[in-house]
């Protein structure tokens, strides 16, 4: 059963009562909220997700509304993970952004049975391509473009690797475009489903893009990585891709992971093996068509 197979009324009641359980990659998330505008946004953006009402959920999250302390006429929202509040309250318009951040945080702090790299991941012809990068390097924007141009989306944020089988697991989540990227994507991909723009968040204006339906449907199909490309978006730059050494790639990847250190030797061996089996590059770009040409060239060479 997929979210868009049930009427909104039923969807809303689940959020209100026993909780809506959706499968997001390898995890099930149980969501509660009584805040109707959020229910409406979720109904639209989560439409392709598989429901998992009878399964175990790893994460139990809730968005509650409360009166603002400063201005009693205003309402705020708060994110709760198992009843605990990991960060403060936010204006109610930001409910969706807060929920999505909260779920990311929950994954980042709790999951240690998988290696969590900080990386966007897409797949083509059975090979995963990693785009590890710091926040602000444009990985979400790049991912949005690629996943709507023939690549399958794994994640714009988490490189989720099974450290024993060396497989990457898809975890297609809403992609939060920030600031200028929103207009860029609206222009480049006018056909895609995008949530409303949410201004004044901690990361500026955010608008969420729904992952393509195919990416969600196939989210149980894992893949081995073949390329690791460290992207950097620089306005007006000439697109350029250059190979980097394994050791440099290793340091960049390991120092930008969520739980590499926690996994100890397991993490080290997994990353070493990953680097060994991939070709590693640095990419500077400003034009998406250039990037796609380069990627297709890389793929045709092998």
């Amino acid at each position: 059963m997929v979210v868009n197979q049930i009427p909104f009324r039923e969807f809303h009641l689940l959020l209100l009562n026993q909780g809506l359980r959706v499968a997001i990659g390898p995890f099930n998330v149980c969501i509660h909220t009584a805040y109707k505008p959020l229910a409406e946004q979720l109904y639209k953006l989560y439409c392709h997700y598989r429901m998992a009402q009878d399964e175990i959920a790893e994460f139990h999250v809730r968005i509650v509304t409360e009166r603002s302390f400063k201005n009693p006429f205003k309402k705020n929202v708060r994110f709760l993970l198992d009843g605990q509040s990991p960060f403060g309250s936010f204006p109610q318009e930001q409910a969706l952004a807060v929920l999505e951040w909260g779920i990311n945080l929950a994954i980042a702090v709790r999951v240690n049975h998988l290696l969590l790299l900080h990386s966007a991941v897409v797949e083509k012809n059975g090979h995963a391509i990693l785009f590890p990068a710091w926040p602000g390097s444009g990985k979400t924007t790049l991912c949005t473009v690629l996943s709507n141009r023939g690549f399958r989306l794994f994640s714009d944020e988490f490189g989720l690797m099974d450290p024993r089988q060396r497989l990457f697991l898809p975890i297609p989540r809403l992609m939060p475009l920030k600031n200028e990227s929103i207009a860029v994507i609206r222009r480049y991909l006018p056909e895609i489903v995008m949530g409303q723009s949410i201004p004044n968040t901690q990361k500026g204006t955010v608008a969420h893009v729904c992952p393509p339906e195919q990416s969600i449907l196939l989210s149980k199909q894992a893949a081995k990585a073949r390329w690791i490309i460290f992207p950097k978006w620089i306005a007006g730059s000439q697109s350029k891709i250059e190979a980097i050494s394994d050791s440099e790639a290793f340091m960049l990847l390991a120092s930008n992971a969520f739980n590499y250190e926690a996994l100890g030797a397991t993490g080290f061996l997994a990353v070493a093996d990953l680097i060994h089996s991939c070709d590693c590059y640095k990419l500077v770009y400003s034009d998406f068509d250039d990037v796609m040409d380069m990627l297709h060239k890389l793929m045709n060479e092998t």
Partner: peptide, 12 residues
């Protein structure tokens, strides 16, 4: 005071 100052944390 902590509750009324919106928030100082930076969720990812």
């Amino acid at each position: 005071r902590l509750k009324s100052g919106n928030n100082h944390s930076h969720p990812r």
